[in-house]
């Protein structure tokens, strides 16, 4: 029952992400536009390119969707509204999302096209950049909660949200999440002006629809993870817990989608260089600071 409800909510959430994304790119707020776009995609031909690696080509969009769905299973919307409150929840999010890389590499290799293949390679480099910045901030969050349970992480923020307790971790995790969801300015793998769509370029019709759905679910899942780790999850005054979760998740989603609109795409070398030479030392500093705070504060 809870699972069905959460999957339904996830579908609604993904749809809203599509509406927000349409609004941030076109400047128009159209509630029906994603529905038309999805129907049109389903009605269009979906071909498999010549000389493609059929298994990879077919699997990649589904794998992307599954990877995002798996991560969503450990996200609590209220204290009880969670598919499975895994004892290793915080780690599980990270583990599930590793398959995003696999899916994108397969989508890049599968169609046997130059643009797609470069897109796939680029994401491999991107993983090397963002991966540590996903894990290390989570470590600091877990240190404070003294638990890997995502529900316990939310409860640990009752007095003070992590965004105030460890702002450095929040910034790093937010940026790394955008890179993981290949949102602009980290859309190196689907770059329109550089790779004509990259890993998406050869997908069409129903397969493209699944790929895009997977991406939307990935975005909303990551936004929800940010809310759970840093924004106190369902906690808040006056409104019921589910409403707080919804408001926070949509606000974070909007921020993630809006940020890339106002800057050019990052260079790969810069992304790698900054993540390793600046991001990782900062993440270590964050762990150190949180460790000290945990010791000092009662």
């Amino acid at each position: 029952m809870t699972t069905a409800l959460l999957l339904l909510l996830l579908a609604v959430g993904a749809y809203l992400v599509a509406v927000i994304e349409d609004w941030t790119t076109s400047g128009r707020f159209r509630l029906a536009a994603p529905a038309f776009a999805a129907l049109a995609l389903l009605g269009r031909e979906s071909i498999v390119p010549r000389k493609s690696d059929r298994v990879f080509f077919e699997t990649a969009p589904v794998l992307l969707l599954i990877s995002a769905l798996l991560a969503a299973t450990v996200i609590p919307l209220t204290a009880n509204l969670i598919i499975t409150d895994l004892a290793t929840g915080a780690l599980f999010i990270n583990a599930a999302l590793v398959y995003v890389l696999v899916a994108l590499l397969m989508a890049g290799w599968g169609p046997n096209g130059a643009y797609a293949m470069i897109g796939g390679w680029r994401f491999l480099g991107q993983l090397i950049a963002y991966a540590m910045l996903i894990v290390m901030p989570i470590t600091a969050v877990v240190m404070r909660a003294e638990s890997l349970l995502t529900t316990q992480i939310v409860v640990s923020q009752a007095g003070l949200w992590n965004i105030v307790y460890q702002p450095l971790g929040f910034i790093l995790f937010f940026v790394a999440s955008m890179a993981l969801a290949f949102l602009p300015p980290f859309d190196l793998t689907t770059a329109k002006g550089e790779l004509a769509g990259g890993v998406e370029a050869e997908y069409s019709g129903a397969r493209l629809a699944v790929f895009r759905l997977g991406r939307l679910v990935l975005i909303i899942t990551l936004a929800a993870a940010i809310v759970v780790f840093y924004l106190g999850g369902w906690q808040g005054p006056w409104l019921p817990p589910w409403a707080w979760s919804a408001i926070k998740i949509l606000a974070v989603t909007t921020m993630m989608l809006l940020a890339g609109r106002y800057m050019p795409r990052i260079r790969e070398t810069d992304l790698l260089g900054w993540c390793w030479m600046l991001g990782i030392p900062l993440a270590l500093l964050n762990i150190l600071l949180v460790g000290l705070l945990v010791l000092v504060l009662p």
Binding site: P185, K192, G193, Y262, P264, R265
Partner: peptide
């Protein structure tokens, strides 16, 4: 240039 570098605001 905006289109090439994914700088949507500039492009529009």
């Amino acid at each position: 240039f905006g289109q090439q570098t994914g700088f949507n605001w500039l492009m529009q």
